[in-house]
Amino acid sequence: MSAAWLPAFVIGVAFGWALERGGMGDACKLAGQFQLRDLAVFKIMFSAVLTAMLGGFWLARVGWIDLNAVALPPTAPLAQLAGGALFGVGFVVAGLCPGTSCVAAVSGRFDGLAAVLGMGAGVLLFAEAWNGLEGLYGTDRYVTIPEALGLPYGLVVGLVTGAALVAFAAAERIEARRGRVVQP
């Protein structure tokens, strides 16, 4: 294995490990999220976003990393609104997402394997339907929320942190009211 492969592979192993430890490869977890019984998926996702956002901001703020050199996912509002909606329906029907379906598959779950194969078919379907979708696809823009709103980056980081903590408290209340179903 050449040097270029190693970091990608190691990061992938850690990624797969973290997903499995949190139970993200279990379709019941995601079903519980959408039936408001077990909000672990929400808690994991947002604590991960919060950790990486705060960590990235502070490492950049003290000058250890250059946040501008980290590849920023593009923004294309209409395509992401439409693609997100389609993705969300698939998400709840499959009970898995692209990353977690792979974890499900290697945990021996055949529904994970079915979702993986379905995803491959979806890629091909997208390619065949490209002529019809090109207009909706639009063009990439690379911008951050602080840039778009003209606010200091740290202010947005602080506001997102506050919103996430409030949302975590709300999630605990919802679970307590609906009766948490603890998945083994």
Binding site: L86, F91, V93, A94, P98, G112, G118, G120, A121, G122
Partner: peptide
């Protein structure tokens, strides 16, 4: 699972 996968495949590429 497979049908959901197809929807996610198209949705993810679009998004």
């Amino acid at each position: 699972a497979a049908a959901g996968g197809v929807a996610m495949g198209v949705g993810a590429l679009l998004a």
